[in-house]
């Protein structure tokens, strides 16, 4: 069974690398949104530093959300999703592999890009580890929750905006914990509490979300 998991992971990776532009798009979006804020609120460094936890998290959240819109689309259109549903392997395991692959190549890249943008916003260097850990724990939750919405809307012609409407309210706990951790470390307080809470959210999402994604995909295919 784990064999299927790795096979699927490799397949996804190969597919993703065939279209590197699609991998880069969320990253560029992340950078552009971050660049918009100094232009909107002014280049004053103190203010930017205070706002930076929120800015980074909101931008990361939107970038993940946008990258998820097409998560199941091509598999839906070429019929491989139907193959998955009728295959003897549990669908929840297959979708977990799919989401993990997606996260490895878009979520992780986002995490790696974030310190650069954080330093540009004036976040002190001692906060960068907390930023990295919080994003590392938080982006999988974003990917998994977003995949639930993507699964439910994959059959719809214009699912993008609907996906955002469905999923953004569910992102709020991650947003609060992530910015809370960063804010704490910005004020020199320990951020371990928020990070542990975030880790429990990650564990919860990894265990429960695949079943919801699988149920959503079955419904979308049945239509």
């Amino acid at each position: 069974m784990s064999n299927v998991f790795t096979l699927l992971l490799v397949r996804e990776a190969r597919l993703l690398f065939r279209r590197p532009a699609e991998l880069a798009n969320p990253l560029v979006f992340f950078a552009v949104v971050i660049a918009l804020f100094p232009l909107a609120v002014g280049p004053e460094s103190q203010q930017l530093r205070n706002l930076s936890p929120g800015l980074l998290w909101v931008a990361a959240l939107l970038a993940v959300l946008l990258s998820l819109d097409g998560l199941f689309r091509s598999d839906f259109e070429d019929g491989s999703l139907e193959q998955w549903v009728v295959s003897p392997h549990p669908l929840s395991l297959l979708v977990l592999a799919k989401v993990v692959a997606h996260w490895l190549f878009s979520g992780l890249a986002l995490v790696l890009l974030s310190p650069l943008l954080a330093l540009m916003l004036g976040l002190p260097a001692h906060c960068v580890p907390v930023l990295l850990v919080s994003l590392l724990l938080g982006t999988p939750v974003l990917s998994l929750l977003g995949a639930v919405g993507a699964a439910l809307t994959v059959g719809l012609k214009r699912g993008g905006l609907l996906l955002a409407l469905l999923i953004l309210p569910l992102y709020i706990p991650v947003l609060i914990l992530g910015t809370g951790a960063l804010q704490a470390s910005l004020q020199g307080l320990p951020a371990a509490g928020q990070l542990l809470w975030m880790a429990s959210l990650t564990a919860l999402a990894v265990t429960l979300a695949p079943f919801a994604i699988a149920a959503g995909l079955k419904i979308s295919i049945g239509e």
Binding site: V148, L152, T153, G155, L156, G216, I219, G222, E223
Partner: peptide, 15 residues
């Protein structure tokens, strides 16, 4: 958004 009545209801149930 979902035109099929049964799938709409099931999708709403999951959500």
């Amino acid at each position: 958004a979902i035109s099929n009545r049964d799938s709409a209801a099931k999708a709403c149930a999951v959500l």
